[in-house]
Every structure is written in C-alpha cells, then in structure tokens.
Amino acid sequence: MSALLSVQNVTKRFRGLLAVDNVSLDVAEGEIFAVIGPNGAGKTTLFNVIAGVYRPDQGQVAFAGHRLDGKTPDQVCRAGVGRTFQIVRPFPALSVEDNVVVGALLRHRGLRDAREWAHKILRRLDLFDKRHQPASELTLPDRKRLEVARAIATEPKLLLLDEVMAGLRPTETDRMVAALRRLNQEHGVTILLIEHVMRAVMALASRVMVLHHGAAIAQGRPDEVVRDPAVVQSYLGAEAVG
C-alpha cells in the first residue's frame, strides 16, 4: 500500500498548549480516511499543519513522496491538496459560479475551460441552478457544498474536508455523502475528513483515527474503532454512535 499522504510524528504547540501531540497517519491513494474526536482535540490544527497554515514543531508531512511541511498554503494546494474550512468562507460578493471558476482557474488557464469545468462541478453538487446567485445569499448547506465545489475545482488528488456535514440535516448529509463517494469512486480523489457526524463517518470512511487531547488514541476500521473501550470512554461516551 503506497501512502499518498504520510504524516509522521507531527507535534504542534501554541504557547505551551500541546495542540497536536506526536501524531502519525498514512492515507493510501483512493482511500477515505476520517479523523474524529471531541472539540478541542486538535483535529483542525492537524489539518492546518497538513494544509501549510502552520509549520509543525516536530515531525514531517509528505505528499506523493514530497515534503509538504514548510510549504505555504497555496503551494500545498498547487501540489494537489484541496481543503475546506470548518467555518465556511466562500467569496461572498462573487456569484456561486465565479467562486468555483476561481478554483478552476488554478489548472485551467483559459476562462472558457475553467468555466466548463466549474459547470461540471456545480452540476455534480446540485448548485448549477443557483450559479448566478451571490455566494453570500446561499443557505448554510449550499455554502458547505460550494466550499467543497471550490476545493474540488482545483483538481486535488487529496481533499481535506473540515466538518462539511456539521449543521446539515440528515437528508442533506446523505446528499453530501453520496457526492463525496462518487467523487472518490469515479475520480479517484483521496479524502481526509474531520467529522463529528458519525453517521457520515461510518458511511464513508474506510479507516478512522481518533484524536483526544492532541494525541491519537485509536486507529482502524470504523466498526472496530467505535467499539474500542478507550474511544467509547473518552469521546463517544453517552452520545454513542449517533
């Protein structure tokens, strides 16, 4: 199994607070990998280390055989890693279409090309009919999908999704799950997701890692992990498999 993304012993501190503590993970090409854990467990920090927002204090991140740590976010993206933000940040004054076109322009230099590609993505994520609306007027579920669409438009080999299901109703979650699965199966996009919605994790992920206080406390197949005593105690607890 060749790892597309390899995180090795990454540690990140903020003024003494240990946000990510010696975490390692490998994501294979074509895989869907989930990182779960309670709030404040360091999931988003780990993401930001991979995405180039933070430089790790220790450890390495490699992507397709190249070092990623030390690169800037835009370099990471150009290397083939797309990301979404936990708190969605579409370009508010731009139309839905233009939001995706900007992303598409990264690899399609001509505007016509980029727009064609953007349209394909918009159709896939059910946003085509709303393409002329300003992004600021979208509902939260639509904005979440737009966030994913924009990231996909950069044609990533690896997609980092930060809680794209949060705040969605169950039907919308299912729609998103279906879209992501298609993306994974038909286009071979590898996905690393942070998720609270266990229903989505169980449906999508082939492997799961559980973070707690910045450290990985379990890793494995979803059905194994949710039965792991340490995980149940520290995280899932009473809310169990929601």
């Binding site: 835009d74 150009r78 992303g103 950069t154």
Partner: peptide, 14 residues
Amino acid sequence: LAIREDEEAARAIG
C-alpha cells in the same frame, strides 16, 4: 477578486 474577498481562502485554492 478572490484575494479581495478572503485572502486566506484564496491561498487555500492555490
């Protein structure tokens, strides 16, 4: 325009 709207998001799309 992307930079004007949200610089961090612009960086995230390369």
